[in-house]
Design a protein around this nucleic acid. Structure first.
Lengths: 125, 125
DNA sequence: TCTATATTTGCAACTTAGTTGCATTAACAA
DNA sequence: TTGTTAATGCAACTAAGTTGCAAATATAGA
C-alpha cells in the first residue's frame, strides 16, 4: 500500500538511512532501534518504503534482507540494475554507480536482474 | 570438511540433482526426502557437497537457499560467474551457460560476483 | 481547533529456515 | 572381521520475519 502517513516511526527509520550511505539489514535496524520502535513496525515500514520506491532491498549471501536508498526511483519505475558490493573485510555493502549490462541470452526473455559483488573496498585495500 | 564417505544418504541427495537440472532449494529437498532422510542430514550433506565443489549455492529473493550442480568445479577452483535465471511464471531456476563480465570498477577490488536474472523461460514464453 | 475515521503501532504469539549437541549407526581401512 | 571415526537421527534450539488484534495517533473535514 505504501506510506500514507508521515509518522514519527517512519522518520526514525528514514533517519538511519540518512546517517548511513551503506545498505542496512532489517535485523540491524531492529536491534539498533529496539528502544524506539517495535520489530513489526520496522518490518512494516521497510516494506512500505520499498513499495514507494524510497528504498530497494536485496538478499545477502547470509539470507538476511538488506535495504538501501534508491537514487532515482519512485512508485512506478524502479531502476535497480546497479550492483551491490560487499567488502569481505569490513562487511559494508554499497550500491555502485556503474551499470552492468547483460550479454544476449537466447531462449530467455529478461525483465530484471541483480548483481552482487564481493571484494575489498577503498578503505580496506 | 567435505564428503569423506560415500554413504547412502549422499547418493539419495545426489540422485535428486541427477533427475533435475534446475536449482533445488534446501527446503524442497527436506520435504521431498522427508521419508528417507532427516532434515539435519540433508543440510549437512548439502554443505559438504558445496565444500567439495559438487554443488554451488545461492540465495533466492525469498531468502531460501538453493543448490545446483557445478559443471567444471572442484574443491579448489570454483567458477561461479555464470548467472542464475528464475522464470517468473514456472518459478524454475536454471544456470545459464553465458559469462557475464563486469565493467571496470574504480576504488574496489573484485574477487567474485553473482548475477541473478528474472524473466520468462523458453517453455513459458 | 476539535473530532471522526482510518492508518499505524505495540504486543505476543506464531511460522519457517536452518543449526547444534549428543547418543547411535554405518563406512571402510587394516 | 573388527576397531575407529565419520555420518546420521532426534529433539531441542536459534533467528528472521509474519500475523491478528486492541490501543494509539495522524489527518481530513467540520
Amino acid at each position: 500500500m505504501g506510506i500514507v502517513r508521515k509518522t514519527q516511526s517512519v522518520q526514525i527509520v528514514l533517519d538511519e538511512f540518512r546517517k548511513n550511505s551503506t545498505a542496512i539489514s532489517a535485523v540491524h535496524l531492529v536491534t539498533q532501534l529496539s528502544t524506539k520502535l517495535n520489530k513489526s513496525t520496522i518490518y512494516r515500514i521497510l516494506d512500505k518504503l520499498e513499495d514507494d520506491g524510497v528504498l530497494h532491498s536485496f538478499m545477502g549471501k547470509d539470507g538476511v534482507k538488506r535495504y538501501a536508498k534508491c537514487q532515482n526511483c519512485n512508485k512506478t519505475t524502479h531502476t535497480d540494475n546497479h550492483p551491490h558490493f560487499q567488502c569481505t573485510i569490513c562487511g559494508k555493502i554499497n550500491c555502485l554507480q556503474v551499470n552492468v549490462s547483460l550479454p544476449d541470452i537466447p531462449d530467455y526473455s529478461v525483465t530484471s536482474y541483480q548483481v552482487f559483488i564481493q571484494g575489498k573496498c577503498k578503505e580496506c585495500l
